[in-house]
Design a protein around this nucleic acid. Sequence first.
DNA 1: GACGTGTGATTATCCGGTCAACTTCCGGAT
DNA 2: ATCCGGAAGTTGACCGGATAATCACACGTC
Lengths: 349, 349
Amino acid sequence: MSGPPVKMSTITELREVDALPRPRPTIRNVAERAGVSKSLVSLVLRGSPHVSEHRRQAVLQAARELGYRPNAVARSLVEGRTHLVGALVADLHNPFYAEFLDGLQESLHGDGLRMLIGNSQWDPAFEDEAVAAFLELRVDGLVLLGIAPTSETLVEATSYTPTVVVGERDIELDGVDIVADDDQLGARLAIDHLVGLGHKRIAHIEGPRSSRCEGYLVAMRRHSLAPYIMVEAADSSEEGGKEAATALLTRDPRPTAIFAANDTVALGVLSAAAELGLRVPEDLSVVGYDNTHLSASHHISLTSIDQARRTMGRSAAALLSDRIGDPGKVARLRQVEPELIVRRSTGPA
Amino acid sequence: MSGPPVKMSTITELREVDALPRPRPTIRNVAERAGVSKSLVSLVLRGSPHVSEHRRQAVLQAARELGYRPNAVARSLVEGRTHLVGALVADLHNPFYAEFLDGLQESLHGDGLRMLIGNSQWDPAFEDEAVAAFLELRVDGLVLLGIAPTSETLVEATSYTPTVVVGERDIELDGVDIVADDDQLGARLAIDHLVGLGHKRIAHIEGPRSSRCEGYLVAMRRHSLAPYIMVEAADSSEEGGKEAATALLTRDPRPTAIFAANDTVALGVLSAAAELGLRVPEDLSVVGYDNTHLSASHHISLTSIDQARRTMGRSAAALLSDRIGDPGKVARLRQVEPELIVRRSTGPA
DNA sequence: GACGTGTGATTATCCGGTCAACTTCCGGAT
DNA sequence: ATCCGGAAGTTGACCGGATAATCACACGTC
């Protein structure tokens, strides 16, 4: 019944149950118990001022005694708003998203909005399905993380529901706000740091985000280091990073520093360096990007660029609340400043 | 308006918007356009067999043309079911939860249920609030991850809504199922592995989960290694692990293997070993628990116990669907078998 | 004593669906 | 000719709340 068969395991019955779950009390039950009309209950619960203290207390007490909880489904139906925001994430394992969501939730909460998380597992079919679910739930807003609204379903979604896209910057849709890390600035921070340490032969391993590479090129030129520019492309894996780094480090003269497109690739650089007998940071400085959990570990201690993920979450919340309040606003792009985190993988040239 | 002020960043206006979001079409609009009653639209959409092909096509076409999407809010209200399951997570950063959720979602999906994720950030106030939100949304089921239902709100929740608790095993509530890793078995796998490599002086660093320590004790005795039992307690941090390991490794004779309560603690053990000039695995074998992302990295490569997180997620889904179908079932405890992942931190004694 | 006036409470609708009950129509058995 | 049964559609009640419109009533006011 539920997915593929699970490896068998122990099942123990804990104890008998007698009472079936009771049905939830409704506003009507509260009204009866308090001896008033259901409208009055509604008024009390919504804090209307035109209710006598006497009745107010009676209603509140009845509600308390019954364990009444308002039915958000019914309320949403009549209000035409759910106060729900759907956040669609490509991959929950990525710590970037986890922290972003923390920031998002924190701020949404302040605006009386609730966050639902959907998880697409990088599968476009799941994306569409999750968004369809959000739309049917009539969420008030949508946040897309690592997902570009290209499919028909997604485009439709953005046209009916206020939407903020995070990470993907090449979106051209009416009324869709964008929050992104300022990749170029991040690359510049990395290069400035290395140049400050006296490095000149600074190579770059290019990943999927081309703006990081651009940032590298711009920064190198600004420091008049154009002759030392070295770029090698790699796919975003440790293996890819290792290959690219090996290629770079066997050149003559070899670079004294490598700025990798992201931390995973940087790990590959570290492996390559170890294999070639190069010490980090004495013989080679390495800078990553994303400041993942891994880079923070004592055993790796990788200098990296941190993407102010919480801040991005808060920005997304602000943009979204704003747009929910007034749809039909001009679409905005907010670039958030990243930060350099210096660790033990970088040192003087 | 949204949370604390955000560090400033670039805002760019992308382009003008003309069309305001239109209101969503309702079933009535579809009915009008197709020239039928709204009931018939409902019947078509729900796949009733008693509809002529002619009308069915007319309805489907009208729905398509209008971009109609059924309103789940309205449907839930009348059905008295939302087909929603709320998963409350203490911490999204923990990869355990992320992978568990993958398994959970996968299986729930097969049962026509949708997963909502709430995030309590380890704060009991947030827990209550998130659960309250789930209850008001009238979710059909609840999954609590790393959260024991002790507060009043949570107990109330379990009495109205089918609930599965994950990780915490000491729950005594009617009708609440439990899914947990079989810690004792996991400990046994670790010890068996080490004994198989010829180790005798196997120490344990105890963490918050006492059953892992029990498993260690039982396994050691089973191998008639009771005289070699050494246990040191530590809090669940790299620092704590380092201290405990240092204490163990400066004993004489020192242990040749350490089984740590979890991977974070095991990292501390590695640090301590490095500081004491002990090579891993030549001089010391180390086993962790949880098989976190870190332990898998080439740079660390820690032998660890993997908690079959996806499987646990699937189990939770199965238990929950089951209980949704028939509340008032006997409460069940499902212990899932963990697995040993051998890496480079263990070797012959 | 007739007439506003304002306060506290109720009544009646509505939200967008589902579904039971009812109507209509048609072919076939009696 | 009458009745029955089933298929195809429609009507209308209902889910649990919010809210506009209405109402009952006590309190001044002239």
